[in-house]
Design a protein around this nucleic acid. Structure first.
Lengths: 239, 239
DNA sequence: CGCCCTATTGAGATTCATCAACTGCGGTGG
DNA sequence: CCACCGCAGTTGATGAATCTCAATAGGGCG
C-alpha cells in the first residue's frame, strides 16, 4: 500500500481504538488537564489537502490530532507559502487563536481529529486554574518553537535546515520504529516549511543519502543511519 | 533635535522625566490591566549592547520599555545570530517566559526599562481575570508576530524583507514625525533581524533611496517618501 | 498496462554572501 | 580649534548557494 493508502489505513485501523480509549499515543502532557474536553468533542476526518480552517476564519473550534498529520501555514497573495508547523498525532491546535485563526490548517494526508468548541475551552480555562496553566504552556511552547524556526530560516543553510528538520521529527516520533521516520508530508511541504524549493530539498536529501547519514526506503520514510553525523550537519559542520 | 546624538542624549535627557511622571509615551493597550505592576517595578538603565538577560537565565523578572530600544535574539554556538524582535517604548517583554528565558535581551542603545518581579505578575494573573486575558493576548500577539516573521524569512527576497521591516516600524511609530522613522538599531541588527548580511541591507537601502522610495537623512533615520511604492516592494512587485 | 502525480536530476541564471577597500561622522587629544 | 582616530556604514568585485526551467524517473491507481 501506498503511502496515501497506507497512511490512511493505519489511520482507519487505529482511529477507532484511540478514540475509544480516549487517550492519545504521544500524549502531550497537556492532555491530562484538558481531558474533560474530550467529552464535548466530535471526531472528524479530513482527506489529503483538505482545509480544516482558513486564516481569518472565526476561531470557533480547537482540535487535537488523533491520527495523520496537519500543516498550518500562511499563504501570500502571490501564492508563496510558508508552513509554520507540522502537527502529528497527539498535537493540539487552534487553541492559540484569538477571535480569528491566524493560520490556515490543512490535512497532509487522511487525518482524524477531535474537534471541540472553543467556548468550552474558554469556560474550562476560566474555571480551572490548571487548564489555564496548561493553555499558557501550550502557547509558550508554540512561541518557542516559532523562535527556533526563525533561527533556522534566518541563519541556517539548506543542508542544515534539512538536518534540523529530520532531527526535530525524530524527537517527536515514537522510538518504536528505531530510527525510522515517517514523513506524512510531501517534498513540497517540507520545502515550504524550510523556506526552500522542492528541488533543493531533494538535492539535500540525496546528498545526505550519498554520505550515508540517512537512507530513504521510500518517499514517506527516512532512516537515520548516523545520528551524530546528522547532528553535526544541523549544527553547521563544514561539508 | 537631531538624532544620533539625539538618540542617546535624548534618552539620557528624557529618561528621568518619563520615569518621574511614571507614565509611558506610546502606551500599549495592555498597560491598563497591568498598571498595578508599576507599583512593584524598579526603573533600570542599560547602555548600548548591554545584556538585560540571557537565554536560559531564570526568568525572575518581566520588563517594560520606557525609553530606548531592545533586541531579543538567539545566538548559535558558532555565533550566528537571529533577532526575533525589536522592542520599543511601551513594549513589554519577559512576560512570555516559562521557568527560563527562551531568548537573550540586549539594549540597542541607552535604554530605560521598568522591571517587575514575575511572582507579582503571576499572582496578579491568578487573581485578576482581566490580567490573565491581557497576558494571553500578549502571548498571542507575540506568536502572531513570529509567524509573520517566518513568512518574511522563508519566502521574501532581501528587498521585500527590508521594505516590510520599514513598514512594520512605520506602523509602530508615532505619527508625530510624519513619515520619518527612527532606527534605534544599527545595520547589523537589521541584518540579523532580516536574516541577511549587513552589506545586503545597505545595498537594499541604497537601492530604495535611488528609486526615491525613501531618503536617509542619517544613519538612525529613514524617511518614507513613497508609501505606496514601499508597500508594493514589500508585496513583491517586480523591480 | 499505462497514465498521472510526485520526486529526482541536470544545466544555467540569479540572488545573496564574502572579502576587501574606502568613506564619513563623531569623538578625542594636542 | 584643528587634526586625527576609530567605528559604522557604504560600495565594489567575486564566488557560492540556491532558484528556475526543463527533462527524466518511479510508483500507485484506474
Amino acid at each position: 500500500m501506498t503511502q496515501a493508502l497506507e497512511h490512511h489505513d493505519a489511520l482507519a485501523r487505529h482511529a477507532a481504538h484511540e478514540v475509544a480509549v480516549g487517550s492519545v499515543p504521544h500524549a502531550a502532557s497537556a492532555d491530562d488537564a484538558l481531558f474533560p474536553l474530550n467529552a464535548v468533542s466530535t471526531v472528524l476526518r479530513f482527506g489529503r489537502n483538505q482545509t480544516i480552517f482558513n486564516e481569518g476564519d472565526d476561531a470557533r473550534y480547537s482540535y487535537k490530532i488523533v491520527e495523520g498529520g496537519v500543516r498550518v501555514c500562511k499563504v501570500r497573495p502571490d501564492g508563496r507559502r510558508q508552513i509554520a508547523e507540522f502537527l502529528l498525532p497527539g498535537d493540539l491546535f487552534g487553541f492559540e487563536a484569538g477571535e480569528e485563526h491566524s493560520l490556515t490548517a490543512e490535512a497532509l494526508c487522511n487525518v482524524v481529529v477531535m474537534r471541540c468548541p472553543r467556548k468550552h475551552v474558554e469556560r474550562l480555562s476560566e474555571e480551572v486554574p490548571n487548564v489555564r496553566r496548561t493553555l499558557m504552556m501550550l502557547l509558550r511552547r508554540e512561541l518557542s518553537a516559532a523562535q527556533d524556526h526563525l533561527v533556522m530560516l534566518g541563519r541556517q543553510s539548506a543542508r542544515e535546515r534539512l538536518a534540523s528538520f529530520l532531527l526535530q521529527l525524530a524527537e517527536r516520533t515514537d522510538s518504536d520504529n528505531g530510527d525510522t521516520l515517517d514523513l506524512p508530508m510531501g517534498r513540497q511541504d517540507i520545502a515550504d516549511f524550510l523556506g526552500l524549493t522542492i528541488e533543493t530539498v531533494c538535492r539535500a536529501l540525496t546528498e545526505l543519502k550519498r554520505e550515508r547519514v540517512i537512507t530513504i526506503p521510500n518517499r514517506h520514510q527516512v532512516v537515520i543511519r548516523n545520528m551524530d553525523a546528522l547532528e553535526a550537519v544541523a549544527e553547521g559542520a563544514e561539508v
